[in-house]
Design a binder for these strands. Structure first.
Lengths: 341, 341
DNA sequence: AAATGATTTGAAATCGCTTTGGATGATGTC
DNA sequence: GACATCATCCAAAGCGATTTCAAATCATTT
């Protein structure tokens, strides 16, 4: 059942039927009723590819899956992708995922764009001087960046959370509680967000005239294992850290294990604040003890970014699309007073 | 730069150029050279939508993202999707992800198919009497199931791992070691794979004339938290379990925490075998103590399933596509002898 | 009643590719 | 030299929608 048949069935021209279904104003309301009723009755679905060819729009947006980079396609990307897809599900816009191997990155974009397979791209996990921004701009491919670059003059759309502010506040809070030896388990340190977090951490320390202890700063993947290893190493340090900052709930779990193994109790002997991207299956509130967090839903970010992409495609200029989301500090049982002096 | 321009540029017809680029035999090798050289030089990329319209093939396969079901779009789906996308990346086949809300499931498939947006579908997380199989068959939509249904007569393609065998062996091994009070932390119990695992567990027990203790069997999401809760509850049981079977590495981490909290040492006081889907960021070997596992890479399954989908599209009948993968049992430090008697 | 304008419909071109059904020479056979 | 065979190539007809441009219908005004 295609447009031609449907039109014949109705005794109308393809033009009118097409217009009726696409909500153009120049069609009688009565016939529009008749048309859409018939479309439903006869089970007509427009052929997406014909439409794409005719309109020149792909009706799809691309999302890159980091496979080889320091950011893996792990829980974070999964949550983010959930947010995007939920927003776009009922809009007849497809989400095309494309794995990215770093080396052939730009050619892949070129292919997708030239082949009219996607209208826009969602970019994740930017580094400070991310070369993709220049490349995509040159290709004239609309995109929204999840996160931020730095020192890049080319105007582009982005949405980021205030990583620096979040970790500055978290650190400040630990300092208020009397902690002085604070260990910081950051994320992959080539990523902008991790750099921002470290900046926030340092800023808070320096505000009090303190300087961070280099040996108590580590980075890497957001995994239980990495958190465990770093925490074990840091606990050897003299003086022993009395508080931990963790970049993710996964690393926080690793720290948790290391503390327990060292016979330390979280919330009493040691404090911890972790960043929580709000995974449905990892609830800070339900942990024992419940975890103090800086919280920002990565799924909500995906949802919003899908929105922003739509706005871009509707014509909103990229340089007007910048969103910096504040991050909540949620205090629970894992934070307690620092050592008496 | 489209086909027409390219043809004009070469002084050839569109027909010949198209054939040359698509590898048809009836074109002179010399002109084929000339054409493909020019295509590269002039940066010609075929318009995917025009091609799709002309051929009637979508050049894309769909992957469903479980958003609301008991299986979330979590680490498992992410790994699986990685496998699929890696296989398809260089084949000019798009992967379209579509979130699924349970209620409007079949209409979504119908839309995707009627709109010629995808050629085939990859289905995950089947329940024993999964109604999607009948629906998709009726819609004439090719699909490959990751996992298995049960009691469904309709022939269809599937790839599954031998969950029953894996858990039977794991259980047998624990019994060999002298364990008798074995707790089982399964997955979501509406899913076929979880049912198969429980079946394997029970079979191994019954082989020795033992019967499982109902109060030491639990299920649910593959999360640290769930593992922790169930383990805590099970440790209250008299007699206390001396061994644990865990359905995933995430739940295993939770069990780990619970054991530690109870002052028990894994591998000495209590044994554990967990199922390992091989996440790049969660290595059973690197845990302390290293974890004994039943191992099967979910990413490899994704890779292979992409292959099977391609075979189906090439004409291989669905009833010939059945793969049951064996599962390795990898013994490490988390398993030790049971209590002396 | 004619002219005007607004509303509603349609014929046909178009998007960029694939593919059918010939053409056109060149080659080989008798 | 005539005829069949092959290897190459091309013109044109789809694929199924959107959209331009024009025509038809109807109501309104003078």
């Amino acid at each position: 059942m295609n447009l031609k048949e449907l039109a014949r069935n109705l005794g109308l021209s393809q033009t009118t039927v097409s217009r009726a279904l696409n909500g153009y104003p120049e069609v009688n309301e009565a016939t529009r009723q008749r048309v859409s009723e018939a479309a439903v009755r006869l089970g007509y679905r427009p052929n997406a590819n014909a439409r794409r060819l005719a309109t020149g729009r792909a009706g799809a947006i691309g999302v890159t899956l980091p496979l080889q980079r320091s950011m893996h396609f792990g829980p974070h990307t999964a949550e983010f992708l959930s947010g995007i897809s939920e927003r776009l599900a009922h809009l007849d816009i497809d989400i095309v995922v494309t794995p990215i191997d770093t080396d052939d990155e730009v050619p892949v974009y070129r292919r997708l764009l030239a082949g009219k397979r996607i209208d826009a791209l969602v970019l994740s996990a930017p580094t400070p001087n991310d070369e993709r921004i220049a490349a995509l701009t040159e290709l004239d491919m609309p995109f929204v960046l999840h996160g931020r670059a730095e020192n890049i003059k080319i105007p582009h759309a982005w949405l980021d959370i205030d990583n620096e502010g979040a970790f500055r506040r978290a650190t400040s809070h630990l300092l208020d509680l009397g902690h002085r030896t604070i260990a910081f388990i950051n994320g992959p340190q080539d990523q902008t967000f991790a750099i921002h977090r470290e900046r926030g951490f340092r800023a808070a320390m320096q505000e009090r005239g303190l300087s961070p202890i280099p040996k108590l700063i580590g980075g890497g993947r957001f995994t239980d294992e990495n958190g465990f290893r770093l925490a074990q190493a840091f606990l050897e340090h003299k003086p022993r850290p009395t508080a931990f900052l963790a970049g993710s709930m996964m690393t926080a779990l690793g720290v948790f294990r290391a503390l327990r193994l060292a016979g330390l109790e979280l919330g009493r002997d040691v404090s911890m604040i972790a960043h929580d991207d709000v995974f449905p299956y990892l609830n800070a509130d339900n942990m024992v003890p419940s975890m103090s967090t800086t919280r920002s839903s990565i799924r909500a970010a995906g949802d919003r970014i899908a929105d922003l992409v739509l706005q871009m495609l509707a014509g909103k200029p990229a340089e007007e699309i910048h969103e910096l989301w504040p991050v909540e500090l949620v205090l629970r049982q894992s934070t307690g007073p620092g050592p008496a002096r």
